[in-house]
Design a protein around this nucleic acid. Structure first.
Lengths: 206, 206
DNA sequence: TAAATAAGTTAACAAAGTTAAATAATTTTT
DNA sequence: AAAAATTATTTAACTTTGTTAACTTATTTA
C-alpha cells in the first residue's frame, strides 16, 4: 500500500502545481486568460479535480496573493537583518517592492487587483495590511522619535509611504511609460529620497 | 415621417442610457455585476441592440473611461481659471482627483482598472496620459524655472506627483482604511503639501 | 473474493458575451 | 393604397466560463 504520507505529499504537489500553472498562464497571457480548463489541460486532469484543492477559482488567486505577501515579508526580514537605520530600511523596503513587481508582475497584480487580476474576496486582507504596517511603522516611529511627534502623525507618514510605493509601481505597470524601467527606477529612488528627506526636514524644523 | 433628426437624437439618447445604466449597476453592485443582459433589462431592449451602439462590452467601459477623463479635464480647466500660482494649481488638481474619486468611484475605477473594472483595451490611453501631463507639466516647469532645473527633472516630478495622487486614492479605495474619508483626506493634503514643499526646498538649495 | 472507499471522468447546468437568422414595424416607391 | 425596400427588434443559438451531480473505475480493506 503506497502509504499515506506519500499520498499526502502527492496531493500537496498537485495543489502547488495548480498554483504554478495558473501563475504561468497569467505571466504569459495575462490574468484574463487564466481559466480552470486551461489549468486542467496542463495538469493533465479534468476540471472537477481542481475543486478538490480549491473551493473556487477565486481561492486560487487568493492563495497566490497570500504566498506573494509571505514572500515579500521574507524579503523584508532580510532587509531588517542587513540594515538598522530606519531611513535605510524604508528605502530598502520600497526597493524590495519594486524589484518584486518587476520580477513577478503576475503576482504583484494578483496582490493588488491590477491588470485584470480580480479577486475581491477580502478576508485576511486587513490582517495583511497590518502586517505590512508592522514593518513600516517602527521605522517611522524611530525617525520621529527625536522630534517627539504624535503617533497619529506616524501613521500618516506610513500611509504616505505606501501611497508613493504602490502609486509608482502600479503607474509603471499600467503605462510601461515612455521611460524604460531603468529611468523609472531612478525616478522612483529619487522620489523616495525626496520623501524621506522631507520628513527629516520637518522633524528637525519643529 | 418622424424625421431623421429625431431618430438620431433617440439613438444618441439610448446610447447614453446604456452608459448610464452600466454605471448605475457598477455603483450599486460593483463592476463584476455589470453584464450586457442586466443592462438590457433596464433599457427594455434585448441584448443584440446593445451591439448596435457598442462593438463590445469593453467598448462600453472604454467610453465611460473617456468621458471620465473629459470631465476631469473640465474640472482642471476651472482650476486653471481660478488659480494662477503653480503650487496652488497642483494642489487643486490633486484635490480634483480626490473629490472625483469619492463622488464617482465607479468611474474612477473604470478609468484605472480598479476593483473589478477591467478594460484592457489600450488605444487612446497614451493620448490621455499625455493630456494629463499637459496640465501638470507646465506647473512644475514654472516652479522649477527659478532653479533652472532640467526638463528631465521636471518630468520626474510630474511622475512623482501622479504616483502620490493615484497611490493615495487607490489605496483609500481598496482599503476603506481604518481612518474614515475625512482623516484620509487630511493625510492626503499633508502629503501633497509635503511634496510641494520638498520640491521648493530643493529648488532653493541648489 | 466481496465490500468499502478513494480517485477520476463524463455530462450537464447556468450565466456570460456574442452573432446569425427570422420576424415585425416602418418607410419608400409605384 | 398596396407592394417593395428598409429599418428595428427579437428569437434562438453558439461559445466559453465556473461549477456540480452522477457515474465509472481503481484501490484498499476485511
Amino acid at each position: 500500500m503506497p502509504n499515506k504520507e506519500r499520498r499526502k505529499k502527492e496531493k500537496a504537489e498537485l495543489r502547488q502545481q495548480i498554483l504554478d500553472v495558473a501563475r504561468d498562464i497569467a505571466a504569459n497571457d495575462g490574468w484574463q486568460n487564466v481559466t480552470i480548463r486551461k489549468i486542467c489541460e496542463q495538469i493533465k486532469y479534468t476540471a472537477p479535480i481542481v475543486y478538490q484543492y480549491f473551493e473556487s477559482k477565486e481561492m486560487i488567486l487568493q492563495s497566490l496573493r497570500k504566498d506573494g505577501f509571505v514572500q515579500v515579508f521574507h524579503l523584508f526580514e532580510t532587509v531588517d537583518k542587513k540594515y538598522k537605520a530606519p531611513e535605510k530600511r524604508l528605502f530598502e523596503y520600497a526597493l524590495t517592492w519594486w524589484n518584486f513587481a518587476i520580477q513577478y508582475p503576475e503576482i504583484y497584480q494578483v496582490m493588488f487587483n491590477l491588470q485584470g487580476a480580480v479577486c475581491l474576496q477580502n478576508e485576511g486582507n486587513i490582517k495583511i495590511h497590518n502586517t505590512v504596517m508592522d514593518y513600516y511603522h517602527p521605522a517611522f516611529e524611530s525617525i520621529n522619535q527625536k522630534a517627539k511627534r504624535s503617533e497619529i502623525y506616524c501613521l500618516e507618514l506610513t500611509d504616505n509611504f505606501i501611497a508613493i510605493i504602490h502609486g509608482f509601481i502600479s503607474m509603471n505597470m499600467a503605462n510601461k511609460i515612455k521611460s524604460g524601467n531603468e529611468r523609472a527606477l531612478l525616478i522612483y529612488k529619487n522620489s523616495l529620497q525626496r520623501f524621506i528627506h522631507s520628513i527629516n526636514d520637518i522633524n528637525t524644523k519643529k
